[in-house]
Amino acid sequence: MSFILVAEQILNGLQFGVMLFLMAAGLTLIFGVMGLINLAHGSLYMVGAFAAAAVAGATGSFLLGLVAALTAAAVAGAIIEVAVIRRLYKADHLDQVLATFALILIFSEGTRWAFGSFPLFLDIPDWLSGPVSLPGGIQYPLYRLALIGAGLAVAAGLWLLIERTRIGIQIRAGENDREMIAALGVDISRLYTLVFALGAALAGLAGALVGAIQSVQVGMGEPVLILAFVVIVIGGIGSIKGAFVGALLVGLTDTLGGIFLPELLKLVTDPSTASTVGASVASMAIYILMSIVLILRPTGLFGSTA
């Protein structure tokens, strides 16, 4: 177990974490401000990836693909907010889950109808491909470093938006007391559409960025969605800061657990059993983490106790 391997795995964990943050940030914002459980968030991630693949394929430009992903996901988010989600704010969570689950099915089959059943091609642009050498002799893919950078930049931008702008003040106020800010003359339904589109755009961006190193296919969003829910439960529902810390915790736990648990087990049992059992335990690691956090802090790390 060399230093290089450990360092590389920590970078992998960070990269996974910041991408989870992009998903979790939108989810937690939407839940925090509107009190809505949005299962279709994974579909917006898929919309972003497909838009990026289609536009990057047609124009040859990855950056245009990213712009398309942001736009398509934001527009899709705004449309479903106005057409469907708006009717659900007063409904109970079970109705919201049912309706947004229906949206997943509609998006999946709609995407299959438009793009076919086979995965699409979206590749890393030339100027970001290949490994770079880091201090200490670590070889690490440049694109993954760029993902870490992009994720951190978005996190910083989101913090500025929420803490330092008028919109941010309205969003925070909306989390605390919907009736009061409506009474103060803020157009609450416009604010909701805006927050929903913002969350959707972040999911779409994550889908496009991750799509370049994974496969762009129907149903790609749902596994990420489950992890994003774990992140916001750990971080505290509604808290952007919690989503950030939770995403990094989940990213690092999942990556490092997958490597070190089988290695630890090899000390006490034969390699074949160790890798089977280790892999099974490692896939539970983040849920164990979630349980521990919930036992110690039932509202999550940064959740409001109210």
Binding site: I124, P131, Q139, P141, S215
Partner: peptide, 15 residues
């Protein structure tokens, strides 16, 4: 399926 696509793309990019 999709697992192989992800693995191969990431493997090629890892050097």
């Amino acid at each position: 399926g999709g697992m192989g696509i992800s693995f191969l793309k990431q493997y090629a990019d890892s050097g």
